[in-house]
């Protein structure tokens, strides 16, 4: 034996998982979505994602005066998630500004990882939508050109299927599953998103209650109040689940650990709340999509949900009134 014995409080063994390994798993989970985005939208998608990720990592490294640019990997996740919410062909400065905003306003001013109230990527997106709306809202979404990496996808644009009933009826559910529809980078392919989501569930990084509550509520509201325009009530519910940002939001945004509740019941209420607000905006609001603001609203309620869902301790005796 060489040198002194280390003394510390038990336990003396630790899981091999770290914050960095969790973040790497999230990046792996986004792999299929990234691949599909490049397949559908070509080089412009690649540029948008690269700029967003690089800007996020650089901003965080500069802010923390840290030489290790990748760090714990959380900035890369934020940057990539922000890119996922953008049209593939936006000018390069949009993801750049979005990422800088996400990291500084959305995360670091609160004290960095673990301390932010709102999902940083969605803070970035919210600022972009309100400041440069013409690039992000309306019939600006490029139609995918699979197999054409160097194609100029900006030539043909349209509205998303959520814009109107006419647009919706132009899009079959199978198309939504595969992702061959106009929309944001990471929103189009439900299959790729589900694949990543199941990986995260399998690894235990997300809890089923948030995506379950979110997606279930969207389906239920779509079926009950969607008017059944899309075939029948059941398929209308599925349309609302598969179109737009619900899957990306439910599997990757709402499940952000830092900004969602800690307790099981809190997670379920959080998910249901996200679904409820999303559908209220979609069905009765002024915008075709409401995932961003639904999640941000529920982020704000997270401390309250944590407060009211402290679990009953083991062996707690029921109080007799």
């Amino acid at each position: 034996m060489n040198g002194k014995l280390v003394v510390s409080s038990s336990p003396h063994i630790r899981t091999i998982q770290s914050v960095q390994s969790v973040m790497l798993d999230v990046l792996i989970a986004l792999g299929p979505v990234v691949a599909v985005a490049i397949f559908l939208f070509g080089y412009q998608a690649l540029i948008t994602m690269t700029v967003a990720v690089a800007a996020a990592m650089l901003t965080e490294a500069l802010w923390l005066r840290r030489l290790n640019i990748f760090g714990d990997g959380s900035a890369a996740v934020t940057g990539l998630l922000l890119a996922m919410t953008l049209p593939p062909n936006v000018p390069w400065w949009i993801p750049a500004i979005g990422s800088v905003t996400a990291i500084i306003i959305g995360k670091q001013v609160y004290g960095g990882i673990g301390n932010n109230i709102f999902n940083p990527a969605l803070v970035g997106r919210a600022v972009l939508v309100t400041s440069w709306g013409t690039h992000l809202v309306g019939p600006i979404w490029p139609v995918p050109k699979p197999f054409h990496f160097f194609a100029d996808i900006s030539a043909v644009t349209s509205a998303t299927p959520l814009a109107s009933e006419a647009e919706a009826l132009n899009t079959a559910l199978s198309q939504l599953l595969i992702g061959n529809v106009a929309g944001a980078l990471g929103e189009t392919s439900a299959l790729a998103l589900l694949l990543g989501g199941f990986w995260l569930l399998y690894k235990g990084h997300i809890d089923w209650r948030i995506p379950g509550g979110f997606i279930g509520t969207v389906w239920l509201m779509g079926a009950l109040f969607g008017g059944g325009f899309y075939g029948n009530n059941v398929t209308t519910g599925f349309f609302h689940v598969l179109a737009g940002g619900v899957l990306l939001g439910a599997l990757f945004m709402a499940t952000d650990m830092v900004t969602s509740p800690v307790m099981p019941w809190g997670k379920l209420i959080f998910g249901v709340g996200c679904g409820l607000i999303t559908m209220l905006i979609r069905l009765f609001g002024a915008h075709p999509e409401g995932v961003t603001f639904a999640i941000l609203t529920m982020n704000a309620l997270t401390p309250l949900l944590d407060k009211f869902t402290i679990p009953r301790k083991f062996g707690e005796v029921k109080q007799v009134a």
């Binding site: 650990m257 800690v262 099981p264 083991f314």
Partner: peptide
């Protein structure tokens, strides 16, 4: 086996809540 790394900020992943056999909220 002996890690001497520093502790970071809680990322609220809730793994401690899931692991606690007594139903406590260790991070809080």
């Amino acid at each position: 086996d002996v890690e001497l790394s520093e502790s970071g900020s809680c990322i609220r992943c809730a793994r401690c809540v899931e692991a606690c056999p007594i139903n406590l909220v260790p991070t809080f």
